[in-house]
């Protein structure tokens, strides 16, 4: 049970908004498991640069992705003050490293606009759309796209 009064309206989507690399993003609240502080991950060998490593989340080993780097933006500095959004993406649990969580938004479906063509290709492929709120442009992430395509999956 979430406390927000509009949660019962089926047309309203609840989104967790956060900042990273100076930009605002949001993801559907249903994919968020928890938000936690930074802890130093163990490095993974031969991993893509945006994979920070793995942490222990109550016994489960969870990889941490630097979202900014994943989107081709400036990588995050000063990690101690940043937060990890633990999200369930498909059947996996993944931690997204971001600067700060800013808000929880209730947005009607009509409030989500298609991604403008201007955005860079790398960013645009991972966006579902944008939300304009209080003169801020908040990018709605397509979390499934954050994981690379499963081409390499073992047969």
């Amino acid at each position: 049970m979430r406390s927000s009064g509009f949660a019962t309206d089926p047309d309203i989507r609840e989104l967790v908004a956060f900042r990273t690399a100076g930009q605002d993003f949001c993801i559907d609240i249903l994919s968020v498991r928890e938000i936690r502080g930074w802890s130093r991950p163990a490095l993974l060998p031969h991993a893509p640069s945006y994979v920070q490593g793995v942490i222990n989340l109550r016994g489960a080993v969870v990889p941490i992705l630097d979202l900014a780097r994943r989107l081709g933006l400036e990588p995050i500095e000063d990690k101690d003050r940043n937060v990890i959004i633990v999200a369930a993406i498909q059947n996996r649990t993944v931690g997204l490293l971001v600067e700060a969580v800013t808000d929880i938004l209730g947005v009607p479906a009509s409030g989500i606009q298609p991604t403008p063509d201007l955005a860079s290709e790398a960013t645009r492929s991972m966006l579902r759309g944008v939300v304009v709120q209080d003169s801020r442009l908040i990018r709605l992430l397509d979390v499934a796209q954050l994981l690379p395509p499963a081409d390499d999956a073992a047969a």
Binding site: L44, P45, H46, V61, V62, A154
Partner: peptide, 9 residues
């Protein structure tokens, strides 16, 4: 489960 196989690990 959450990541994948890593060579050497």
């Amino acid at each position: 489960a959450n990541y994948g196989q890593i060579p050497g690990i």
